[in-house]
């Protein structure tokens, strides 16, 4: 599903150039659950941003479902992203002004799903995430675990092929963290490919494979399954 070869990314200021990804290569097959680990500043989030088509690489190749997407402009990236990729963030990134229902509904609006269909799909996924009873609440009225459930619901409502999770349990206690990891595992078992950036060895154990990074390169790969 994802094939990255010699991927490069630099951050430049007037005085300094920082290498974020240094000829990084790896592959993720459809249905895999991959954890990316490494110390702060090793390039994990940069990698996730590029895989999530939020950012451009400066060099190398990035094949998504066999299509080279490295040179895509913003419009093409946005189009590919909204149909294929779901995101789960450490800080949930729910929109405060929207209710739970409206937050989950948002990706469907951007993909042009009709209102009646949206209602069915959102209710279905809220039900699945056991958060239906909070559908009219605003994010600030929910606990951290509930907020992350809503974020997961939002990530999956469009049935994406790939979910990218950036430290999904980073702001949660262990009980809520486990619940979220179980949700991701369930989704993976239903066929969704998951790439998760984490500092937590515990969370990484839910994955099939752990890629360890250092200074913008992969250093080891551990296959768990």
């Amino acid at each position: 599903m994802i094939k990255i070869t010699n991927l490069e990314k630099y951050y430049r200021t007037e005085e300094v150039e920082t290498v974020a990804l240094n000829k990084l290569s790896f592959e993720v097959k459809e249905g895999e659950f991959v954890a990316v680990m490494g110390p702060s500043g090793c390039g994990k989030s940069t990698l996730l941003n590029i895989v999530g088509l939020l950012d451009d690489p400066d060099g190398g190749s990035f094949l998504f479902n066999g299509i080279e997407v490295a040179g895509f402009n913003e419009r093409k990236r946005a189009d590919l992203r909204k149909h294929n990729i779901g995101f789960v963030f450490q800080s949930f990134n729910l929109i405060d002004e929207l209710t739970v229902f409206e937050n989950v509904e948002l990706p469907l609006i951007y993909t042009g799903v009709k209102a009646a269909d949206r209602k069915v799909r959102v209710e279905e996924v809220l039900d699945k995430m056991q958060i239906m009873h909070r559908r009219n609440h605003y994010p600030q009225q929910l606990s951290g675990g509930q907020q992350q459930r809503v974020a997961v619901a939002r990530a999956v409502v469009n049935n994406p092929k790939l979910i990218l999770a950036d430290e999904p349990t980073g702001n949660l206690d262990s009980s809520n963290g486990n619940e979220v990891m179980q949700l991701l595992t369930d989704l993976n078992e239903q066929g969704t490919t998951i790439i998760m950036v984490t500092h937590s060895e515990h969370d990484a154990k839910y994955s099939h494979r752990i890629i360890r990074m250092l200074d913008g390169q992969t250093v080891t790969e551990n296959i768990l399954v």
Binding site: L54, R75, A78, N93, I95, Y110, R154
Partner: peptide, 16 residues
């Protein structure tokens, strides 16, 4: 800015 980032992330175009 965060809201705008999330919206873009979820597929919102610049024009939208």
């Amino acid at each position: 800015s965060r809201e705008i980032g999330v919206r873009k992330c979820l597929g919102a175009a610049k024009e939208g």
